[in-house]
């Protein structure tokens, strides 16, 4: 059942502590594509990613991942999830961290050689081969988040990559050269068939994505390619497009028909007159 859609959400809602964090989201994330999840801090990006990774409680509506409901046990070795804070053991070396996660993903003595190979491969991919023996606590923040990213790249640890990568702000605080390299890696992974979902609150990273999901205050502003988004709003940058979508009332070019990749999600409350006052998107 190879489907071109990796993630399908319909009326996806998360209420946490009486507050609606995600409000009736509907979108798709295709395979073989780098999809950017963009929006200001606190707009619900992390919650959405947690839903897809299967660790978020109190989600209603549909969230289908690789044809299964999000969080299905069958997805646990097919989805790579990188949390925003690097989730690695500070008191283990980089290689020990990766070796442990690899053993969880692909256990058994018989696969030891394959695991060692996978660890070496991901170390090279995140450019940390020189730090294999360094304790994670001795690394810089950016290096530690790359270790965390490397864990997600392990896949089943034996050469088969995760089919969906959910990466929560993986490039924050990184050196521009490294950021460029990581984005190239994301595109390579997508070219190999993976669906890569990358969140960021930095709008210029949007330009590096094949497709975008713009999120604001728990609602989807737009689902489109960066080019189509700019063309449709007449903006020069995605950031301007974002502002225009926030400020524009629900117009005729609002919700396109469902199914098309160029379709826009309902601007909903974000476009209603009550929300017309422009807000600071980035400080």
């Amino acid at each position: 059942m190879m489907n071109t859609v990796a993630v399908r959400a319909e009326a996806l809602t998360v209420v946490r502590g009486g507050r609606t964090v995600l409000d009736g989201l509907g979108f798709t994330v295709p395979r073989s594509t780098v999809t950017g999840l963009l929006g200001p801090s606190g707009c619900g990006k992390t919650t959405l990613m947690r839903v897809l990774a299967g660790v978020q409680a109190n989600a209603t509506g549909t969230a289908e991942v690789l044809g299964l409901p999000a969080g299905d046990p069958g997805l646990r070795h097919r989805v790579g999830y990188v949390t925003q804070a690097p989730s690695v053991y500070a008191d283990l070396s980089v290689r020990e961290n990766l070796a442990y996660y690899a053993a969880v993903l692909a256990p058994g003595r018989a696969r030891r050689a394959a695991r060692a190979e996978a660890v070496d491969r991901v170390l090279a991919e995140v450019d940390l081969a020189g730090y294999a023996g360094t304790l994670a606590s001795r690394l810089s923040g950016g290096q530690r988040s790359r270790v965390s990213l490397a864990v997600a790249l392990l896949g089943a640890g034996t050469g088969d990559r995760p089919e969906l990568l959910v990466l929560d702000e993986p490039t924050v605080g990184l050196d521009p050269v490294l950021r460029r390299d990581l984005w190239a890696l994301f595109h390579r992974l997508a070219a190999d068939g993976a669906a890569v979902l990358v969140s960021s609150h930095v709008m210029d990273e949007a330009e590096r994505c094949d497709r975008l999901l713009l999120l604001r205050e728990g609602r989807l502003l737009a689902e489109d390619t960066p080019d189509a988004l700019r063309a449709r709003t007449g903006a020069a940058t995605v950031e301007d497009a974002f502002l225009r979508l926030v400020e524009a009332p629900a117009g005729p070019e609002g919700p396109a028909g469902p199914g098309g990749t160029g379709g826009t999600a309902a601007p909903g409350g974000a476009g209603t007159p009550s929300a017309r006052h422009p807000r600071e998107v980035r400080p």
């Binding site: 299967g54 046990p73 070795h77 989805v79 804070a85 053991y89 969880v104 993903l105 864990v151």
Partner: peptide, 13 residues
Amino acid sequence: SSGTLERLLSMPL
């Protein structure tokens, strides 16, 4: 608190 538990529980452990 380090997030490693959440990550492990999203894996087949």
